[in-house]
């Protein structure tokens, strides 16, 4: 009887941990994906329009967003991914401040594709799984 109850508790706990670990990162990465990509697109437009001041402001906001989200995602996402995203966000600020349009556009695209890759992991397709 004891073993039976322990088994049921273990199965229920396993389900709860799994459900929590699916829902929490999913919600956090969704936020990062939708807010982050729209901000990066706005930054790209600002850069192309020559508005570097706005680009710097957006780059700082993107960095804050990434830092905030990554703090919560630390137990779900590996350290290398977090450091890489943060480093790329810092790079966008530096390039924006240097008014280096080519490098800034490159950094924006890289950051965007990294965020998209992270989002793809949480919303996997058959190809992502395999």
């Amino acid at each position: 009887m004891g073993t039976h109850v322990a088994n049921i508790i273990a199965i229920v706990m396993a389900f709860l941990i799994l459900i929590a670990s699916f829902i929490i990162p999913h919600a956090l990465i969704d936020d990062l994906y939708f807010d982050g990509t729209s901000m990066l697109e706005a930054m790209e437009e600002a850069v192309k329009a020559g508005d570097t001041e706005s680009a710097i402001d957006i780059a700082k906001t993107v960095y804050d967003l990434i830092e905030k989200r990554m703090k919560s995602l630390r137990i779900f996402v590996d350290q290398d991914t977090i450091l890489e995203l943060e480093a790329k966000a810092v790079a966008t600020i530096i390039f924006a401040e240097q008014k280096n349009v080519d490098l800034l556009l490159g950094a924006i695209h890289e950051l965007k594709s990294d965020i998209e890759a992270l989002n793809e992991q949480e919303n996997p397709t058959f190809a992502t799984i395999l």
Binding site: A14, F15, L18, S21, I75, F76, D78, Q79, D80
Partner: peptide, 21 residues
């Protein structure tokens, strides 16, 4: 590997546990 979150080990182990059960 400290750079790997603990959940990266826990989730697959739980998946195996549930499959076995």
């Amino acid at each position: 590997d400290v750079s790997m979150p603990l959940l990266h080990g826990i989730i697959p182990i739980l998946a195996l546990f549930l499959m076995q059960k």
